[in-house]
Design a protein around this nucleic acid. Structure first.
Lengths: 383, 383
DNA sequence: AGTCCGACTGTAATCGTTTTCACTAGGCAT
DNA sequence: ATGCCTAGTGAAAACGATTACAGTCGGACT
């Protein structure tokens, strides 16, 4: 059975006007006449005489005080009770809202921190950005969130934007390309790296202990009886590189031969790699993969090859996303302390702002190995 | 086997300094001495004599022209080639970056649109916000993204923020509570609702055809031979309500008795509901659920009850997330045209900005039913 | 009674832009 | 020559806030 066609129509239409195909993409200009009349009051909020939204001057006028007094009321400065009351009433009456652009310009303080991640759809980054945002708002700061898409050009664009916004600090998960030239960039604000990092960068950073985490997976698989353990790692970030190192040395320490491939960060790439690899002589018994996209790829490949997990093919990876529990017998993963990463990044940033000259610091957090059925002991019966 | 403990340490430590537990939450102050010396050059970008970052005045000075001319060069105004060249050189030499706050203040145009969603971790909203952002940047506008967490208080906070940022327009997925009083709010900018909507709201909107989509699921399950079809719907948004209506009328149209429950939007809630429900007499043969969290809940419940999908329990839901393909025999879902929703919202917003007085419009997009194994024909053998 | 102090309050400068307006040259038609 | 137009340029006035500075006004102290 195929897919039922999608149909667009007015929910409460008398007769559906010109049904529109809901194409999967491409710009579509809304061209639908509305059967709903609407009163054409375009009134926004309260306005002053000239029809613009109320400014501090309007409030001052309404309260019969100077703008300085209004400003002081707004910032809890020293004002007599009588005037404070009058101003507060005037604020309500005029519907006054401070203009942040003006405030920032004058006070030379943006109260804004930037956050540039490589892919907001990656649950790791959504979780981290939630943590960052919460911490920021608690400190009375705003967050500007940007998506680089692993694209150095977009990163450059956003870094420029951050400069123009005069952010007070940046939390950044850079691509390898940008990481390499980060020192030459001369930014006006302190930077805290997250997730990715290089020994050469002179910035603060908070990262997972990637080598150790990968080693934990090797250890675990080894203990479960697996020997031919292959690895798939992302080729765009230093993270993949670090996880590979941990994998390699843990394998070597056990007298096993490492066998790794580096892939572009797409599920398809991993699927294809596994399908190919399993056709070779000396097919792996297990895979360690460096991100959740690859995890999906491996599961798809196993399905395509009609290999059961873990008997035909064991697998372990990174990022404890909700669905990893539900796939097959459950997938063994390293859980990252996402909350902690976000909060620590903010902490490092604030401390850096207080002491700009202190030496660079790097915070390395440990992951937790969540063991599930995808790495059950080798040779055991399937459940 | 238990979880290996997480350990925090310096990657290249001589000896791990005071190992820190990577707790799951709670603020943690980074207190790690760095073994890496760093030159204490705190130089930011180029600065003018007084040590601040370069302004247009500095550029003018360096180029030997007036600030007006610099401004004109920056905005491609009429300037002779000779001066333009001199100014461009000066811009490079000073490392000048325009100050957006000042620009916005003076030009009275923020070039910013707001986007308030209820949960950025929900892949539906991450996809939509990606689309919105892309469309915005293509139009030379910035996006401020905020997370309401389904919390009306946070919504109010963010709406106030939007006012203060003087955004030019808002794309908004409101909670029911806020939706009800949206008309009384008197915002200074046009609003386009997404995902949620009410017949009474006087704003533009782009939503899924929820009743039809839910009906499609009923249709499909019915055609596959299922009769006792239960429904689980979210209780915080109008979306759940609309999907329920579609479900109810489609059931009625087939002479089936609807049986629905409304839940808080958590996977656990759905899991508990299913476990309870399956213990009752007249246990459902199939579930229709209104979001992907509930989908997880149902799968977990089935696992707990040792019911196979679809023979013990069929299930269908909303949102074609990548993992729905991988769970069990694959989950049947309604796919929303997320890209289209985001782009259309921007289009509606732009058109509203051009014609503030035109009557309210509502764009209803159709979903696509992706059929997978979780709704295979009743009584068929398991695979 | 005169000084001084403390608590408010207002005036005006300022943040970094854009934009209006006036002005200067040339070029061209008269 | 004179006048007019056009293109290019600079001076200065906004934009909406914060804040340094200077008053004002009682009351307390000598």
């Amino acid at each position: 059975m195929g897919n039922a066609p999608g149909i667009a129509l007015e929910t409460f239409s008398e007769a559906a006007p010109a049904p529109t195909r809901s194409g999967q993409a491409g710009p579509r200009t809304a061209k639908i006449a509305s059967p709903f009349g609407v009163p054409s009051t375009t009134t926004g909020l309260q306005m002053n005489a000239s029809g613009k939204t109320a400014s501090i001057k309007d409030v001052a006028l309404a309260a019969g005080v100077s703008v300085a007094t209004v400003s002081r009321v707004l910032s809890n400065g020293p004002v007599s009770e009588a005037l404070r009351k009058r101003v507060e009433d005037a604020v309500r009456a005029t519907g006054y809202r401070p203009n942040l652009s003006a405030r920032r310009l004058r006070s030379q303080h943006s109260q804004t921190i930037g956050l540039v991640v490589s892919d907001i759809r990656n649950p790791f980054f959504t979780a981290v950005s939630r943590a960052v945002e919460d911490a920021a708002y608690r400190a009375g700061m705003r967050v500007i969130l940007c998506n680089s898409d692993e694209n150095p050009e977009r990163e450059e664009l956003y870094l420029r934007l951050m400069q123009e916004e005069r952010i007070t600090g940046l939390i950044f998960a850079p691509t390898r390309a940008t990481l390499d030239r980060l020192d030459t960039l001369d930014l006006d604000f302190p930077v805290v790296l997250i997730d990715r990092n290089a020994p050469t960068a002179r910035h603060d950073a908070v990262v997972l202990d990637n080598p150790r985490a990968a080693a934990m997976l090797v250890e675990h698989l080894h203990a479960q009886g697996y020997r031919r353990i292959a690895g798939l790692f992302g080729n765009t970030s230093t993270t993949g590189q670090e996880r590979y190192e941990g994998y390699r040395s843990a394998m070597a320490a056990r007298g096993l031969a490492p066998a790794a491939r580096f892939l572009a960060p797409y599920a398809d790439a991993a699927e294809a790699a596994v399908v190919d690899w399993m056709a070779e002589r000396d097919r792996p018994e297990a895979f360690i993969v460096s991100n959740s996209l690859f995890l999906m790829g491996v599961v798809k490949a196993a399905r395509r090859l009609k290999l059961s997990i873990p008997d035909g093919l064991a697998v372990a990876g990174f990022d404890n996303e909700p669905w990893t529990e539900l796939v097959g017998p459950g997938l063994t993963v390293i859980e990252q302390p996402v909350q902690d990463i976000g909060q620590s990044a903010m902490t490092l940033l604030f401390e850096r702002l207080e002491a700009p000259d202190r030496p660079r610091r790097r915070l390395v957090l440990g992951g937790t190995c969540i063991v599930r059925g995808s790495t059950a002991a080798r040779m055991a019966d399937a459940d």
